[in-house]
C-alpha cells in the first residue's frame, strides 16, 4: 500500500477542502478499499510462526534433496539429481515402499468408500437407533493409531489371535492365516485395519451429503418407476458428488500418511512387507540419510498431488457422464 501522492488523489473539487478534511477523506477511502489497518495485525503472529517453522522448512526440503547431507557433518556436496536418479532406478527399498503404498491406497480407497457409503445410506434418518449406531461406528476414529495397532496385533496374532480363533471356532480352519506374517498379503491386512479405523469418519460425511438430497427427486423417480439401481445411478450418485470427492480425496491422503499404524503393527523400522512411503522416508532419515530422505519426501509429495488430480478427474467423469 504505497501512499499515492496528493496530486493524484482523483479529480480534486474546484475549491480544495481544507487539509485535515482531505486527509480524513483519503483515510476513509483507503479503509473502504483495504479495511482497517489493524486487520493486518491479526494474522501476523500465525504468519510469523508458520513462515519460520513450516513454509521455509518446506522450501528447504528441495534444497536438501540435491545434496548428500548426512544430517550432522558440517560440509556436504551437491549431487544434482543423483538422489532422484537412484530413486527412479536402483533402490529396491523405495520401489517396494512405493508399490506397497499404492496397493494399500487402492484397497483402502475402494473398501472404505464402499463401506462408508453403504453404512451411511442405512443410517441417513435421524432416528435414535441411527444416531446410536453412527456413534458406535465413529468410535475408532478418536483412538490413537498406536492403540488401534495393538488391538489389531492381537486380532492378527497367528497363534493366539482373535481372527484365527474365530475362524477355527466356526470350523473354517481352512481360512486361517498368518496375516501380517504372510509377506504377500500383509499389506492388504494392514489395509483392512485402516478401513476399520476410519470408515465411521467417512460415513458421517456421506450422511451429511445424503441428507441434502431433496425428497422430491426420489418421489419423481418413484413415479417414473425406475429401478433401485437406476435411482442410485441417476439420482443419488450425482447428488452426493461433492461428498464422494471429499471422501476419496481425504481417504487417499490419509492412507498415504498411515505412518503410526505401520510402525505400531510392523515395528520400527517396519518389516519390508508393511513398509510404505511415509515410513520409508522416516527410516532413511533415522539412518542419517537426510539428503536422500528429502528427495524421497519430494517424490512423495508429488505422488500425492498426482493421485489426487487423477482421482478428481475420474470421479467427475463418472458423475457427469450419464
Amino acid at each position: 500500500m504505497s501512499a499515492p501522492s496528493p496530486v493524484k488523489t482523483g479529480p480534486s473539487p474546484a475549491a480544495d477542502p481544507p487539509f485535515p478534511e482531505r486527509v480524513a477523506h483519503r483515510r476513509r477511502s483507503l479503509r473502504r478499499r483495504y479495511g482497517h489497518p489493524a486487520f493486518y495485525l491479526f494474522p501476523l503472529p500465525a504468519l510469523v510462526l508458520y513462515v519460520i517453522f513450516f513454509a521455509i522448512p518446506t522450501v528447504q526440503a528441495f534444497q536438501y534433496a540435491v545434496t548428500d547431507w548426512d544430517g550432522y557433518s558440517a560440509d556436504y556436496d551437491s549431487v544434482g539429481l543423483d538422489n532422484f536418479g537412484q530413486l527412479a532406478g536402483g533402490d529396491d527399498l523405495f520401489s517396494n515402499a512405493m508399490s506397497n503404498s499404492l496397493k494399500f491406497m487402492l484397497v483402502v480407497v475402494v473398501l472404505q468408500t464402499l463401506f462408508s457409503l453403504v453404512l451411511a445410506s442405512m443410517l441417513t434418518r435421524n432416528s435414535r437407533s441411527s444416531t446410536l449406531l453412527r456413534a458406535v461406528f465413529f468410535l475408532p476414529t478418536i483412538l490413537s493409531s498406536v492403540s488401534v495397532a495393538f488391538v489389531w496385533k492381537f486380532i492378527y496374532d497367528p497363534n493366539f489371535g482373535l481372527a484365527n480363533g474365530a475362524l477355527e471356532g466356526v470350523g473354517l480352519d481352512a481360512l486361517t492365516s498368518s496375516y501380517l506374517g504372510d509377506d504377500g498379503k500383509a499389506i492388504y491386512f494392514l489395509a483392512l485395519t485402516q478401513v476399520w479405523f476410519h470408515t465411521g469418519q467417512m460415513m458421517v460425511i456421506f450422511i451429511a451429503g445424503l441428507q441434502q438430497i431433496p425428497r422430491e427427486l426420489y418421489e419423481a423417480a418413484a413415479i417414473d418407476g425406475v429401478s433401485r439401481w437406476q435411482r442410485f445411478r441417476h439420482v443419488t450418485w450425482p447428488m452426493i458428488a461433492p461428498a464422494t470427492s471429499i471422501v476419496i480425496a481425504y481417504t487417499t491422503i490419509q492412507s498415504f500418511k498411515a505412518f503410526d499404524l505401520v510402525l505400531g503393527l510392523g515395528g520400527n523400522p517396519p518389516q519390508g512387507s508393511l513398509d510404505i512411503l511415509s515410513t520409508r522416508i522416516y527410516t532413511s532419515f533415522a539412518n542419517s540419510e537426510f539428503g536422500y530422505a528429502a528427495a524421497e519426501s519430494i517424490v512423495f509429495m508429488a505422488l500425492i498431488a498426482l493421485v489426487t488430480v487423477i482421482q478428481r478427474r475420474t470421479v467427475k467423469l463418472t458423475q457427469s457422464g450419464a
Binding site: Y50, I52, F53, F54, A55, I56, P57, T58, Q60, A61, Y64, G71, I253, F256, K257, F259, L277, S278, I281, Y282, F285, F290, A293, A294, S297, I298, F300, M301, I304, A305
Partner: peptide
C-alpha cells in the same frame, strides 16, 4: 500447508 504431508518438511524442521 494442509496439502504438505508432514514427511515432506520434517527433515528441515528437525534440523531447525
Amino acid at each position: 500447508g494442509m496439502s504438505v504431508p508432514a514427511q515432506a518438511n520434517m527433515i528441515p524442521q528437525f534440523v531447525l
